[in-house]
């Protein structure tokens, strides 16, 4: 190991006045247990109310939300959104099997291409691993089905989220990720996204669309049905 490394660690140990193994068990167990700290009670609600809370907070943070009854209605909802916002009928879609399985044929006027974002893409469409009710936040992660650039480069980001993926807290999000990817590891990028990009760097007045998307539109699937969590 490098000299610089030993220099820094040595300095830390001298300041902490202890040998290099003392305390190891305390840190090891804390890391392994990753116990939850206090979580605000705000999202500790029955499922239907969690979905409503998610929507309330997402809208408060300037996202737009539309509810559709089932996945088959997503292409239509997307086309309607693009039209209402005066956007071109072209989307760059994540290569996500769940999105690929949607009935795109129903919207022949809509051009759907797949892959990471390009400079020319105006609208992206991605899925989400979860929605966090506490603050109306989306949880996305990188992987073959989720190029991260889609979340940031296009001016408009549309996210398809199943209502039964809405959970209470960030901590619930971590549990979902650990269940999928294992303990002590994460995908390259995990994004918690709440509303569209913004800045207040000029005279503290908030402007949307600083560098990332100006619009964040959430198509919430199955929120009206009796959604059971899978």
């Amino acid at each position: 190991m490098s000299e610089a490394r030993e220099q820094v660690l040595g300095a830390l140990r001298r300041s902490l006045r202890r040998g290099d193994t003392a305390g190891t068990s305390a840190t090891a167990s804390r890391l392994a247990e990753h116990r939850r700290n206090l979580i605000p009670a705000r999202a500790d609600l029955p499922r239907a109310e969690q979905v409503a809370l998610f929507e309330t907070w997402a809208v408060r943070q300037a996202a737009s939300v539309v509810r559709v009854s089932d996945a088959a209605a997503v292409p239509g909802a997307l086309a309607a959104f693009l039209k209402a916002e005066n956007l071109p009928a072209e989307v760059r879609m994540a290569p996500d099997p769940e999105l690929e399985a949607l009935p795109w044929r129903d919207q022949p006027m809509l051009t759907v291409t797949k892959g990471p974002a390009r400079d020319s893409d105006a609208v992206s469409l991605t899925g989400a691993l979860a929605g966090i009710a506490e603050t109306g936040t989306l949880l996305l992660h990188s992987g073959p089905a989720g190029p991260t650039s889609l979340n940031f480069l296009p001016e408009t980001h549309v996210v398809v989220l199943s209502a039964n993926r809405i959970v209470a807290s960030y901590e619930d999000g971590w549990d979902i990720l650990r269940a999928r990817f294992g303990e002590g590891t994460l995908p390259r990028t995990v994004n918690y996204i709440t509303g569209p990009s913004r800045t207040a760097d000029i005279e503290q007045t908030i402007q949307l669309g600083a560098h990332g998307p100006r619009r964040l539109h959430i198509i919430l699937v199955g929120a009206n049905a009796d959604a059971e969590r899978d």
Partner: peptide
Amino acid sequence: QECSTYTTFST
């Protein structure tokens, strides 16, 4: 803010 717009975890 309730939370910032983007909280990004890079590994």
